[in-house]
Amino acid sequence: MSHASDNVVIGKIGAPHGVKGWVKIHSFTQQQDGVFSYQPWVVGERTVEVEQWRVQGNAFVAKLVDVDSREAVDALKNFEIEVAATLLPDLGEDEFYWRDLKGMRVVNLSGYDLGLVQEVFNTGANDVLQVKANPKDAFGQRERLIPFVFDQVINKVDTEEKVITVDWDPGF
């Protein structure tokens, strides 16, 4: 169930680039330059628009409207870039956003409750579910890191029931 007021994190503001208000941008979108397709950005308490952007080495730099100095960039540094969820394309039947996985229950094929998804992150090799185990976990686990790899580990993601079924040994 999504709310119209929901924001989605699509990137992060990095270090200043030069002295004229340009800033490094870390993109979390699948197409790296997709971060610039959705605007305005919500950064901390501010709403900002991108005046222009370009590729710089293996990263992006952007000039934000009314951010004209290194000091102005410093005030935004390390903030997440959010956009209204309504700006993002509607998803197909078996698609979901990472944020939708947070809080979902993770169970293995034999029905063992492995815990709740705390975070989803990318290791470079693949996406990983960080699952916080129940306090009384029978295997003494506090958390599990489960590779988010369909067919090998991930069996089913049920967004209605908020359950992810995995082929995973609870001892790990």
Rank of each mutant, 00 (worst) to 15 (best):
R46D: 06
F79K: 05
R70E: 04
V42L: 10
R46K: 15
Q31S: 11
T29V: 11
D74C: 09
E45T: 15
A62D: 02
Y38I: 07
E80K: 14
A84L: 14
K24Q: 12
A85F: 03
A72F: 01
V42T: 05
N78M: 13
E51P: 00
V73D: 01
N78I: 05
A75I: 01
L87D: 06
T86P: 07
A84M: 09
A62Q: 00
D94T: 13
R70V: 01
V83Q: 02
N58D: 06
V73T: 03
W53A: 04
A59R: 14
F79P: 04
E45K: 15
L76K: 03
I25D: 00
A59Q: 13
A72V: 08
N78D: 11
V23D: 08
A59L: 12
Q56Y: 08
N78A: 10
P40L: 09
K77L: 08
V50A: 08
E80M: 07
W41V: 02
V23Q: 04
A72Q: 05
V48G: 09
V23E: 02
E93W: 09
A84V: 05
R70H: 12
W41Q: 07
D74P: 03
E45G: 09
K24A: 05
V50L: 05
A72S: 06
A72K: 10
V61W: 06
F79D: 03
V48L: 10
K77Q: 11
I81A: 00
G34Q: 07
G34E: 02
P40Q: 14
Q30N: 15
